[in-house]
């Protein structure tokens, strides 16, 4: 019984939140890894693209709510999501046309492209704050829980409950759908194969007659769609606030590099490693250990490795360790030469 309680406790406070968070990071990291693999630069504006997409989704959600549209028990934001995706795709395509295409044709170093993405970051960050403001926006309507901790306790008779928020379940379902669709696309379709070929070896891909502009365009479309999805799910699950999306870059980059650059499967694995590490390192294990130990016994301290304020440190440590120990990542990705 005590063991079951311990497991339930851990599931409720670590497993479920970390899984939802991991799925959100994974969707973001997939976009970064695609761009890293195909355009060969670290896209620092990715967080702001996410933010822009979520903002568009939220604005459309508000409009729908104003019209009295509702899909209760599901959150209205699900209807806003397609608009967010379209907005993010529009942003990436316009940015590519106006900013990145020129540098691509000049065959500049990755540093110049990364620097150009800082310019885009400024523009998007300003637009987002101008349009929706810097404050946090809560958009989760609909049912809050699939199952509450209380119901779970009633059902099982355990002392610890497992609550599953609807937004967490939705995150997972949508993320799985998006990933399956992406992997199917990359593995089975002609365009997907062209993208993988281009990512592996540009010259060879060009020789085989792959149209680079098309590959790049598809990469941006996928990136925009995933970014908006990730950010909208994140905002539903937690809260939307513009400044978060610069900070969230760090776990996303950590996941990308951990997984191996240009490796979509690696990005997903990396995202979950980062998310689980972050949540576990900042979780206080006191009650968990209390259940496992002898009766009426609990350690005196919180048994928390690090306060939640330092959660970036976790991504950062993962990042540095990977770069020093295995710079290619889990799944051997490319190490682009200097």
């Amino acid at each position: 019984m005590e063991l079951l309680n311990a497991i339930a406790l851990l599931t409720n406070f670590v497993l479920i939140p970390a899984t939802a968070y991991g799925a959100q990071i994974a969707l973001g990291a997939l976009g970064v890894t695609l761009i890293f693999g195909i355009l060969r630069f670290a896209n620092f504006s990715h967080g702001e693209v996410m933010s822009f997409g979520a903002m568009a989704a939220i604005l459309f959600t508000w409009f729908l709510q104003g019209q009295g549209v509702s899909i209760h028990p599901l959150p209205t934001a699900l209807l806003g999501l397609p608009v967010g995706i379209l907005a993010a795709i529009a942003v990436t395509l316009i940015a590519d046309r106006v900013v990145f295409r020129y540098y691509r044709q000049q065959r500049v170093t990755p540093i110049t492209l990364a620097m150009a993405s800082i310019g885009l970051l400024f523009v998007l960050a300003g637009l987002v704050r101008f349009i929706i403001g810097p404050e946090h926006q809560n958009i989760a309507d609909g049912e809050r829980f699939l199952i509450t901790a209380f119901e779970f306790r009633e059902m099982t008779g355990l002392d610890e409950g497992i609550g599953i928020r609807q937004t967490q379940a939705l995150t997972l379902v949508i993320a799985v759908i998006a990933m399956v669709a992406l992997f199917w696309f990359l593995q089975k379709t002609r365009a997907g194969k062209a993208m993988r070929a281009y990512s592996d070896n540009v010259d060879l891909a060009l020789l085989s007659g792959i149209n680079p502009d098309r590959v790049v365009m598809i990469a941006w479309i996928i990136t925009g769609a995933l970014a908006a999805t990730a950010a909208t799910l994140y905002s539903l699950d937690k809260v939307y606030q513009p400044f978060i999306f610069l900070q969230i870059l760090l776990p996303i980059f950590a996941a990308t590099i951990l997984g191996g650059i240009g490796q979509p499967v690696g990005a997903v694995i990396g995202a979950f490693v980062v998310a689980y590490s972050e949540v576990m390192v900042t979780y206080a294990f006191r009650r968990f250990i209390g259940y496992l130990g002898p009766a009426d016994w609990a350690p005196e301290s919180m048994v928390q490795l690090m306060s939640t304020n330092y959660k970036f440190a976790v991504s950062f440590i993962i990042l540095v360790v990977v770069l020093l120990v295995r710079p290619t990542g889990i799944i051997r990705g490319k190490v682009i030469e200097r």
């Binding site: 670290a42 990364a114 980059f253 330092y310 950062f316 540095v320 770069l323 682009i336």
Partner: peptide
């Protein structure tokens, strides 16, 4: 000794940690 853009990511992370402290 990291690649240039890795260094950028790493230093961005460090600065966030310093601010958090």
């Amino acid at each position: 000794g990291l690649r240039a853009d890795y260094l950028a990511i790493a230093t961005l992370g460090i600065s966030e940690i310093i601010i958090a402290i």
